[in-house]
Design a protein around this nucleic acid. Sequence first.
DNA 1: TAATTTGGTTGCTTTAAGCAACTAATTTTG
DNA 2: CAAAATTAGTTGCTTAAAGCAACCAAATTA
Lengths: 149, 149
Amino acid sequence: MNCSIAQFAEILGDKWGLLILRDALVGVTTFSEFERRIGLSKNVLTERLNRLVENGVMAKVSTRPKSGRYRYELTEKGKALFPIAVSIMQWSDKWVFGNEGEPIKVVDGKGGAPIQSVEVIARDGRTLSSDDVEYRPGPRGGRPYNQDE
Amino acid sequence: MNCSIAQFAEILGDKWGLLILRDALVGVTTFSEFERRIGLSKNVLTERLNRLVENGVMAKVSTRPKSGRYRYELTEKGKALFPIAVSIMQWSDKWVFGNEGEPIKVVDGKGGAPIQSVEVIARDGRTLSSDDVEYRPGPRGGRPYNQDE
DNA sequence: TAATTTGGTTGCTTTAAGCAACTAATTTTG
DNA sequence: CAAAATTAGTTGCTTAAAGCAACCAAATTA
């Protein structure tokens, strides 16, 4: 499907994929810890982790050779999902939790100051809302945002 | 579940939810146009749109009173998902499509210049990667990023 | 006036997810 | 050092969700 969002959705566009990403970002690496924290069945976790590995988002590495124990860790491609995760958290904190307050705070590792709100910024520095942009066909061109017909 | 990402996932954390958001952002409003562009079955589309309406992400408004024709449009809460959609597109463009080039370009409505890359910025202006942050329990506190036990 | 479009609903089939039991190494505990 | 527990799964069965096709009534277009 010739759509960036659809591509993302294929790789981790479901509940479990997003929760695996969340846990991976906070440092979870083992099969059993993902299982315990997320609370999904083993066969589904197996399938989802395999998909992430196949798509280069995570790497499966042996802790010690021949041990049968592994670490699942984010690749560079996986770590690049960080702004997506943060923007999701910020949206939820504001629009779902609201004045209840957020469950987790993301802070700068150096100094512990809160981070800025993730925003879409124009080349000239203006913050853009969804009404301020236009969509143009890219290099792959053709009809924009259409997948079939 | 006391987790911001899980809350988001409940509302539109699946393939169809993300594709509906994509289309809504580019201006799709009618049931039939969502159906045609996304290519999902009517019953699932009905259920998904209802969920988005129930959660305040979209509003269902009659085009003309008593006409039986509706527009599904993003609320303020829904439009606030914009940075998430853009960060997903940018990730996919870079890490999935790569040098093939992106299918769609998001440009500034004023002047048509490309937008900046969506990033996580510290209070002091530094761009932060996933290794540069820490996670602290928020006001809702308790154990961070744990939902059960 | 007839055909088409819109926005669905209903019923059936197929696919995916959840659950429990089992396994075979490996590691920890007494 | 033996027994228990943990890790990282697999297999089989059940239940929930998605896909598909047909159908429908009101409104719109030809």
